[in-house]
Amino acid sequence: MVILAQNWAQAFMAANPGKVIQVSGGGSGTGMAALINGTADLANASRPIKDKERKQLAKRRDVEVEEFRVALDALAVYVPASNKIESLTIPQLKSIFRGQTTNWKDVGGEDKSIVLYSRENSSGTYAYFKEHVLEDEDFAATAQTLPGTAAVINAVSKDAGGIGYGGIAYAEGVRTVKVAPADGEPVEPTMENATSGKYPLSRFLKIYSAGKASGIAKEYLDYVLSDDGQKIVEGVGYYPLPKEATAAAE
């Protein structure tokens, strides 16, 4: 999501000379930590805020957190272009990332051992995947953790046995596979399927503010939710908010 924030920040600063938005990278946890520690005004996150974080914010800074949905994302499962596998079910994904399925032939692919690429544990994507796919069980210890989705893409694209996951916006140079819910048909991670909720791994990207957003932070948020801001979402490769979601946030 860093890349999205950077684009927003740059466009916002271009439109409002003299107003500066600083963007720091890292995972969703990084943003939350910065929000709690008071070093950031807004935190981008690809997962919902945890109760613990809410409490810490209240305790440390004595503020309620405010949540904004700012974009829609389909969490894609990547394989290298050379891998011909069509689709995977959620239970298959779980078994793969738990380290129980270790060969592609067990899920209908060629005879090749599976190499797991995961995200650093600060990432909201990591937390989302762990919750929704692994059902809160642990990733296999052999899963390599890389510090950004881009690194995952890069690694998967170079590794014939590789599999990774991450935001749809990043999926360049790799194939995304269709994902099937435990008891359903495989679905492609397209904008339509994400908007309708048919794709099992779609989620909202969020911005959290400590207390009521004010000043530049408020202007920035307004910009993000404006048509211009949502156009940037599309430009980067995520999906813009469906109209009703924008309304719900306000």
Partner: peptide
């Protein structure tokens, strides 16, 4: 460090 690990498209970077 950031470019090598977090840029959206490593080949372009």
């Amino acid at each position: 460090y950031a470019l090598a690990t977090q840029s959206p498209n490593v080949d372009a970077a």
